[in-house]
């Protein structure tokens, strides 16, 4: 047979590249996070600082506020996407002409670059250029200004995310609904179950794994949203849409305070890993029957 050495040679480029650009940055950021390091300060070298940076982070109001709005954004965006996505998937279940065509159209936003999504929605919502403020103004007299109203900016970022990512939820749920066996539904109809009862007792338990997997993926992606928001609102007005990635890009990175910036990166990475791990074990593990 072939020697394993050749196998390792084939694997080597992947391991080397991912080590230098994936693992080493991780170790390095942890290392730097325990130091004071600002190349433009009086002492431009790395000074060991113990957990000093982390002491500072837990009292950093801007950072904590950013965490708060991130959680709110992720919650509302993913909730809306799952509900709308499910309704759209249901609407796809019966036969109608042009189904494949509509499905293709619906998939379209997924391939658009996040930064372009941001620019599209900026053009849609900027006062005096966008069509949405214009229509709201002329129809109900509401003055939409995402540059000034924190609530409006927050809601528009959610609408943008829903526009961009609901198709993903729809398509995954269509895949789940299509694979359901028809028998339990026919039986329930014979037994005279209502629509809501059928949904609650039959459909939902059967598609739960697919819903959970979709929610998990969407939550992870929503937590790392940057490009779209950066383009649409730049994190403003104030800190209303300064989600955590935007916070790092706009507030932490430009301030050459590398030690403190690394510490923030470590904390965000920690929170992301913990959130993903909790979601993963909490949502997906119950599928496993517990061995005793």
């Amino acid at each position: 047979m072939k020697s394993n050495t050749f196998g390792w040679i084939l694997l080597a480029p992947t391991i080397v590249v991912l080590f230098f650009f994936g693992v080493l940055p991780f170790l390095y950021v942890v290392y730097v996070s325990f130091h004071q390091w600002n190349p433009f300060a009086a002492n431009p070298y790395m000074i060991y600082n113990g957990a000093g940076n982390f002491r500072q982070i837990v009292f950093d109001g801007a950072f904590l506020a950013s965490l708060g709005v991130t959680v709110a954004f992720v919650f509302f965006a993913v909730l809306t996407e799952v509900i709308v996505g499910y309704l759209l998937a249901q609407a796809f279940m019966s036969d109608f002409p042009g189904k494949a065509f509509f499905r293709t159209i619906h998939t379209l936003p997924l391939i658009i670059a996040p930064i372009i999504v941001g620019s599209i929605w900026k053009l849609m919502t900027t006062p005096s250029i966008g069509i949405i403020p214009h229509l709201l103004q002329s129809s109900v007299g509401f003055d939409l200004n995402i540059g000034q109203s924190a609530a409006a900016a927050f809601i528009i970022t959610i609408i943008m995310d829903v526009w961009h990512w609901t198709p993903l939820v729809t398509l995954t749920l269509i895949a789940a609904l299509v694979s359901l066996p028809p028998d339990p539904f026919e039986q329930a109809q014979i037994d005279g179950a209502g629509k809501w009862q059928i949904f609650w007792h039959i459909t939902l338990p059967m598609i739960a794994p697919a819903v959970m997997a979709t929610v998990f993926i969407r939550l992870m992606d929503a937590l790392r949203i940057v490009d779209e928001v950066l383009m649409l609102t730049g994190g403003g007005p104030g800190s209303a849409t300064r989600y955590i990635g935007v916070h790092i890009f706009r507030e932490v990175f430009p301030r050459t305070n590398y030690g403190y910036g690394s510490a923030i990166s470590v904390v965000v990475l920690y929170l992301t890993i913990v959130a993903c791990w909790l979601l993963y074990t909490g949502m997906l593990a119950p599928r496993k029957p517990r061995k005793s």
């Binding site: 957990a51 982390f54 002491r55 982070i57 837990v58 009292f59 904390v267």
Partner: peptide, 10 residues
Amino acid sequence: WVAMSLLWFR
């Protein structure tokens, strides 16, 4: 451990 440390600092 990390969570405890951060909360302790705060």
